[in-house]
Design a protein around this nucleic acid. Structure first.
Length: 426
RNA sequence: GGGGAGAUACCAGAGCGGUCAAAUGGGGCAGACUGUAAAUCUGUUGGCGCAGCCUUCGGAGGUUCGAAUCCUUCUCUCCCCA
């Protein structure tokens, strides 16, 4: 399999330095991508770059994942309008561990000559003295060169300016590439298109300092058809960590992809072959309501990031929640199934004594379960018909009574179409 | 250092003594339509015991029967000149 060809038909190439393709077809090449340890979990915004490493490894090359322990302490000005907060070392180490575990689901770190490797730039930068850095690295790159970068230019023009620390970021990242080139034989750095400037500083540094030839390859930033930011749901980032984003929500996120985006995402985020994808796209066009594309996309990613069982559970839950599920089917569920189905759904608890007589729905939705932040909002949505209890519309004046309980102790509350809450009454 | 402009709800941005819980647009949320899509249309978007009341227009004071609107002062932002 040809790496560049593979990326090309998947639409994952934005730009690359001349000679990159020749280098990759000439020999087994080591390439790396850096990850920011700002959290102990990666999110789906990192997915495209992870897939680049996966393709690299599948094509027989050697992938390196660099955790930016040192660079993470500085903050990349690319794409950020504001100066970043600095993290301390303990947090960084903790975050790196989490990230490594997640990358292991995608990359083979232990088998063969092209096993993936993880490195942490903190390890080679922490001992570097400031003076030494200035002499060994700073000497090779002019300020003029650094200022010409878009990321820097933008910040210079903006009112808030750029600190010396963030200004130096590209040098530190450039040095990483240089170090990996020298010590690990890494000749390629990849990343999102916003990383182009930083990466090229690295190849430049390698040329001037070591007289070596290194390459850059970037992929286009993932976009959404409606112009919104990719990777955010109403509740924020979509994480790979099942604790931060439940497998159910994760599956739902992909399932809700719009048609226009699905065809693009399936190429970038799955390993399905061109033939398989073309077929899916064709099938989808013939019968769009079946949403073959979204289903295939959600299935593939959920299984890889989580597991087959998590995927099955998510599908099952989705069918009960969005399928023909009625109050009747809900009532038939055993307690175990019920809990399994609502695994990823927010839960709250309240005392049974509160509903022995009957409880006004507004109070139930606010004071007791906090599903709504205010009574005004709860009333408004009740009026609009946006609240359902056990899959039946509830209006103003609806009362919660004990005979509504599923399995004698649960209530399923629905806010709008897609937001579910399970209330346990004990 | 000198001069000027400004700070309004999630954001942008009107209002410039009462009729302002505050125009308009965007965003958010919900409803209809659908395919848990897109587009479209509609409603809604400070709180509450909701035909009424309470807390909001950078902070603190003041004038007034009455202030987002006027005055004083503080903080912060932007622009121009040096």
């Amino acid at each position: 399999m040809d790496f560049i060809e593979e990326l090309r038909w998947r639409g994952m190439i934005h730009d690359m330095t001349p000679g990159t393709e020749e280098q990759l077809s000439k020999e087994i090449t080591a390439g790396y991508i850096g990850y920011d340890p700002t959290s102990d979990s990666l999110h789906i915004g990192n997915l495209a770059s992870i897939m680049m490493l996966v393709h690299l490894q599948r094509a027989g090359h050697k992938p390196f994942a660099l955790v930016g322990g040192a660079t993470g302490m500085i903050g990349d000005p690319s794409g950020k309008s504001e100066e970043r907060n600095l993290l301390d070392e303990t947090t960084l180490r903790h975050n790196q561990e989490g990230i490594k575990k997640q990358l292991e689901k995608f990359l083979d770190f232990s088998h063969g000559h092209n096993a993936a490797e993880m490195v942490n730039n903190f390890d080679w930068i922490k001992e570097f003295s400031f003076l030494q850095f200035l002499r060994d690295v700073g000497k090779h790159i002019t300020v003029n060169y650094m200022m010409a970068k878009d990321s820097v230019k933008k910040r210079m023009e903006s009112g808030s300016g750029i600190s010396f620390t963030e200004f130096s970021y590209q040098l530190v990242q450039g040095y990483d590439f240089c170090w990996l080139f020298e010590h690990k034989g890494v000749k390629l750095q990849m990343g999102g298109s916003d990383q182009w400037g930083n990466i090229v500083t690295g190849t430049e540094l390698i040329r001037r300092k070591l007289g070596g030839e290194a390459y850059a390859l970037t992929c286009p930033l993932i976009t959404k058809a409606d112009g919104g930011k990719f990777g955010k749901s109403e509740s924020g980032n979509v994480w790979l960590d099942p604790v931060k984003t439940s497998p159910y929500s994760f599956y739902q996120f992909w399932l809700n992809t719009t048609d226009a985006d699905a065809a693009e995402y399936i190429k970038k985020f799955t390993l399905l072959s061109k033939a398989e994808i073309d077929l899916l796209i064709r099938q989808h066009q013939e019968a769009p309501h079946l949403r073959m594309l979204q289903k295939a996309l959600a299935r593939d990613i959920t299984i890889r990031v989580h597991s087959e069982e998590d995927y099955q559970a998510a599908v099952e839950a989705s069918e009960i929640l969005f399928g023909k599920g009625t109050t009747e089917t809900l009532k038939k569920l055993t307690e175990d199934t019920l809990l399994a189905v609502f695994e990823g759904v927010p839960k709250s608890e309240m005392a049974k004594s509160e509903i022995t007589k009957s409880l006004d729905i507004v109070e139930f939705l606010t004071d007791f379960t906090h599903i709504f932040p205010s009574k005004g909002e709860a009333r408004r949505m009740l009026k609009e018909g946006g609240v359902q209890i056990n899959k039946e519309k509830a209006g103003e004046g609806f009362s919660i009574t004990a005979n509504l309980l599923l399995n004698g102790k649960y209530l399923l509350v629905q806010k709008g179409k897609k937001n579910y809450f399970l209330v346990k009454v004990v």
